[in-house]
């Protein structure tokens, strides 16, 4: 066996859990889905050749599972109190309230666009990598990114005006 399962869980749990959390906006649902994906990896461990392959496999699996789950349950984004991070105490310069608003707006994007945005800005993948991971034409990936940024920008501006 080329990949140690426990090590794969340790290395990738933050990736898988965060993706599901940002996608579903539900901490319990995200944890359950992330566990399911690791279990799926465990059952397919013989096919996994390297730790990098495991990461790629997990990214792909969590994307598809989140899209399926969202469509199946018609899960509307829920903001649980524990999904909102504690405001940081100066360690980071980012605004926690802006972060939360952005996460809520991302949660309102259509499934495919949401997947592309999370892969781009959480996982820091470029459009070519996203295209390969999702079996999606690169033009579609770029289009999702462009339209999502436009939508997010305009919704943020609207919220600013309303405040």
């Amino acid at each position: 066996m080329a990949v140690d399962f426990a090590q794969a869980v340790a290395d990738n749990q933050s990736l898988v859990f965060s993706f599901a959390l940002r996608f579903l906006r539900n901490r319990e649902g995200a944890e359950e889905l992330a566990q399911d994906v690791f279990l799926q990896l465990f059952k397919n461990l013989r096919q996994i050749e390297t730790p990098a392959h495991a990461t790629w496999w997990l990214r792909r699996a969590i994307c598809h599972r989140c899209i399926d789950e969202s469509r199946k349950r018609k899960l509307r984004p829920e903001v649980h109190l524990d999904a909102v991070p504690e405001p940081s105490t100066g360690a980071s310069e980012s605004d926690p309230f802006l972060n939360e608003r952005l996460r809520a707006l991302i949660g309102d994007l259509p499934e495919n666009a949401r997947t592309v945005v999370i892969l781009r800005y959480q996982e820091d993948l470029d459009p070519t990598e996203i295209s390969k991971l999702l079996d999606m034409p690169i033009s579609t990936v770029k289009s999702h990114l462009h339209r999502s940024l436009t939508t997010l920008r305009s919704r943020l501006q609207k919220q600013e005006i309303c405040r």
């Binding site: 869980v9 990736l15 965060s18 279990l39 991070p85 980012s94 802006l98 991302i106 781009r120």
Partner: peptide, 25 residues
Amino acid sequence: LEDDLRAALRREPAPPDFTAKVMRR
């Protein structure tokens, strides 16, 4: 906006008992 998105979507650690739950399953 892109920097704001990176900050908003920063990875979060999984719950502390996550590995134990996966290994149990």
